[in-house]
């Protein structure tokens, strides 16, 4: 299987990538790790005339803590996120999520930014980025702008990124004390994508009641989302088997669940409820 013909361009800086993107417009695609784009090009689901390789832009894969935020460059590989000491210490939910993506070879090439802009409905990262209330920084001809994760994912493989923009960074506040996070998924066995994946962040107050609850769900619907009904149901409650089960029962509320050869809509909704409960249980355990 060969991709259709295209002209290859290598960008050495964000400015150069944006300039090429401006020149070729909708005929161009950015290539980072290529783990989603190249398979789509081989199936001719994507046929860009120009491919702009941003994979070699120096420094765009940095992972560090600056100004009270943990900053991850768009080109950080899944494997680098999964094995970063800083992230395992300060943002373990994200490292745990990255370790669940695809397989060893895919994690060695695929990038955080690439996964987010591709916005596959079964991608793992969006759930974690939503639950951690990540900020997504994009750069375009007019400069930089920052989007909240909730504003970023619009629909099936559709994000708020404009054609002339590129994602350059994702940043997060580190988790505070008495706060735990967890990502659990039901893997589609052939592809490794999430049939459903749930990321939960739970913060407890001195008395042990839930002060903060954030839940991101991927795989269930066309776009990943924050399960607000779950968050509301649990906030203020003392987490126990009953309150967690009750909150998790709202995981698919108001959502049109996807249905395909791998799972019916009803099965996906049930997976979302079950995995939400498991993610909440783990997050609570880690918060204590």
């Amino acid at each position: 299987m060969y991709p259709g013909a295209f002209e290859y361009h290598r960008a050495d800086s964000v400015a150069q990538a944006l300039s090429l993107l401006g020149r070729f417009g909708e005929q161009a695609k950015l290539l980072a790790g290529g783990q989603s784009l190249l398979p789509m090009m081989k199936l001719r689901l994507a046929e860009p005339r120009h491919l702009i390789d941003i994979g070699g832009i120096a420094g765009l894969d940095a992972i560090n803590e600056q100004g009270g935020r943990i900053r991850i460059g768009a080109l950080a590989r899944h494997d680098a996120v999964a094995s970063s000491d800083l992230l395992r210490r300060r943002l373990p939910l994200l490292a745990e999520c990255a370790a669940e993506i695809g397989d060893l070879q895919v994690r060695n090439m695929g990038t955080l930014g690439g996964s987010l802009v591709h916005a596959d409905p079964g991608a793992d990262y969006p759930a974690a980025v939503l639950a951690l209330e990540g900020e997504i920084v994009v750069e375009g001809p007019g400069g930089r702008r920052t989007l909240k994760a909730e504003q970023f994912f619009l629909d099936l493989m559709t994000t708020a990124l404009k054609p002339a923009e590129m994602l350059v960074e994702v940043n997060f506040a580190p988790l505070s004390a008495r706060t735990g996070g967890a990502y659990v998924k039901h893997r589609q066995p052939a592809s490794g994508f999430a049939l459903v994946g749930v990321a939960a962040v739970v913060g407890l107050n001195q008395g042990g009641a839930v002060e903060r609850c954030r839940v991101g769900v991927t795989g269930l619907a066309a776009a990943p989302f924050r399960a607000l009904a779950v968050e509301q149901a649990l906030t203020g409650k003392t987490p126990d088997a009953r309150s967690l089960a009750d909150a998790a029962s709202h995981a698919a509320d108001g959502k049109d669940a996807l249905s395909d050869i791998h799972a019916s809509a009803d099965f996906r909704a049930e997976l979302a409820r079950v995995h939400t409960q498991r993610a909440l249980e783990k997050a609570v355990e880690r918060a204590r």
């Binding site: 290529g34 994979g55 494997d79 070879q105 060695n108 090439m109």
Partner: peptide, 25 residues
């Protein structure tokens, strides 16, 4: 299609699937 791994090679010491990588990359 990036599933079977038969094409795995080392790129700067790391395993990658060479069917899902361009030679120019």
């Amino acid at each position: 299609s990036s599933l079977c791994g038969a094409c795995t090679v080392l790129l700067d010491g790391r395993a990658v699937k060479s069917c899902t990588l361009l030679a120019v990359q």
